[in-house]
């Protein structure tokens, strides 16, 4: 039988899904064990048990000075910045995507401009953002917007442009104005694409968030990771990295669910 025709049953499929996760855990445990037997005070690969203890401590115990559980404050600060940045990118991107995709005049005016803008490496702008917007929340949110907006605009304008001409002509024969075509035909058709684009932008958004927090912040997941780096606190770093991964995965799952729930007609495109 050919390899392309061999499909796993449910049990085997589950096993195969879990296998790489287990492999990473085992590899880490073995590596950590080897280093710790050689040098019990090694800090590079703390034992899984130590990481678990640290995790519990971080999640439940307050800061010694203020009594605040910093883990949740960090999470809240980071999520706020991320959410704000993504929300601004998505809404501005939607408006400009529709404008560029639907109106030839806007396409001539803006398409090339956005294409050039999207080539600017956002991190290279970070110093400028800090100078212009200060070291507060604004510059971090702006970095996320700068980093994700051009992609969202380009993606949505392309999707809008790809809406079959037949549908736009049909709408015109039903007497629709440009405005009605924009809100009743183009907008609902690109909404599932907007969710897709946001899903794809989440990775870069986290990257820019953590980069901005690493350089200037006093709270936030990225700030904490780069702070404890000085003490080689690998257990804390690992806890935060796992937590960020879980958050990112949950957001992605939530967006996919929303897309299925609210745009069932677009099912096959996802």
């Amino acid at each position: 039988m050919r390899l392309i025709n061999i499909k796993p049953g449910p049990a085997l499929a589950l096993f195969l899904v879990l296998l790489p996760f287990a492999a990473v855990l085992v590899a880490y445990a073995v590596g950590s064990d080897i280093r710790l037997t050689a040098n019990p005070s090694d800090k590079l690969l703390p034992a899984p048990g130590t990481v678990g203890d640290t995790m519990m401590r971080l999640l439940t115990e307050g800061d010694r000075r203020t009594g605040r559980i910093l883990f949740w404050y960090d999470t809240w600060a980071s999520l706020q910045r991320l959410w704000l940045g993504i929300a601004i990118s998505a809404s501005v991107g939607l408006v400009f995507g529709l404008l560029i995709g639907l109106f030839p005049l806007m396409r001539s005016l803006l398409a090339q401009f956005v294409a050039v803008l999207s080539m600017i490496p956002p991190l290279a702008l970070l110093p400028i953002l800090f100078i212009v917007f200060g070291l507060g929340e604004l510059s971090k949110v702006v970095l996320i917007v700068v980093g994700t907006l051009p992609f969202i605009i380009r993606d949505l304008s392309q999707r809008t442009y790809e809406i079959p001409q037949e549908l736009l002509v049909k709408a015109q024969t039903l007497g629709a104005s440009s405005w009605v075509i924009a809100i009743r035909v183009a907008l609902p058709q690109v909404m599932p694409r907007l969710i897709q684009a946001v899903r794809l932008s989440l990775g870069p958004a986290w990257l820019f968030l953590i980069a901005a927090e690493a350089i200037a912040a006093d709270l936030g997941l990225g700030y904490r990771i780069f702070l404890v780096r000085r003490y080689l606190a690998m257990d804390v770093i690992l806890t935060y990295v796992i937590w960020i991964t879980i958050l990112a995965f949950a957001m992605d799952w939530l967006l996919r669910w929303a897309s299925r729930r609210f745009y069932p007609w677009a099912e096959e495109g996802l």
Partner: peptide, 20 residues
């Protein structure tokens, strides 16, 4: 000068709005 209410059209494909 452009399609309007006086002419109706049915294409071979993409004639109805898939999101409605």
């Amino acid at each position: 000068r452009e399609p309007g209410l006086d002419r109706g059209i049915v294409f071979q494909r993409y004639s109805v709005f898939p999101h409605m």
